[in-house]
């Protein structure tokens, strides 16, 4: 079998008081595109902008009016939808810790305070000139999805910023 290599390669991990960064690799990401009706039918419900729909088998993000990202098992019935697998195209970085929000604030001009960015919320913005999707998975925990080719750059930027907090 051909061996898979994640975007950040061998176990990327970084620790500081209040910050832990690691690559949370090994996920399946599928982009579904189509009319709202078709998306709703396939996904059961259409996630609202800025809010993740978290189910047991999959988490969904509404990334554009006619596009949904599904992390995990893609829905079975895909009638009327255009499917694009993206599992290799993104790195997923898990960030957690008491200073995680301060790190995000050092990287992007979005209000990441708990009141404004609570568990379940999703923000699409840019880190260091590259697009990222940030999913708040808990009070102190986040998933950051960045483009594969930028993975090392984004990782390096986060690690560097963490050291300046």
């Amino acid at each position: 079998m051909l061996e898979a290599r994640s975007p950040l390669g061998t176990a990327a991990h970084f620790d500081l008081p209040g910050i832990t960064l690691r690559e949370a690799a090994g996920f399946t990401l599928t982009q579904l595109a189509g009319e709202e009706k078709a998306l709703k039918k396939a996904c059961g419900k259409l996630p609202a902008f800025g809010k993740a729909d978290v189910q047991e088998a999959a988490t969904s993000f509404r990334i554009a009016p006619s596009q949904v990202w599904v992390v995990g098992a893609a829905p079975g019935k895909l009638a009327g939808l255009h499917v694009t697998p993206l599992s290799s195209g993104r790195t997923r970085i898990a960030l957690e810790g008491a200073r995680a929000r301060a790190l995000l604030a050092a990287c992007a001009a979005v209000d990441f305070a708990l009141e404004s960015f609570a568990p379940g919320q999703v923000a699409m913005t840019g880190f260091h000139h590259t697009p990222v999707l940030i999913h708040c998975t808990g009070e102190d925990t986040f998933h950051i999805y960045a483009m594969r080719s930028f993975a090392h750059s984004v990782w390096g930027w986060l690690v560097d910023a963490a050291q300046g907090l």
């Binding site: 990334i63 554009a64 009016p65 699409m124 913005t125 840019g126 000139h129 590259t130 697009p131 990222v132």
Partner: peptide
């Protein structure tokens, strides 16, 4: 166009 976000 929101190039670093939704690309809309």
């Amino acid at each position: 166009q929101h190039t670093l976000g939704c690309r809309q």
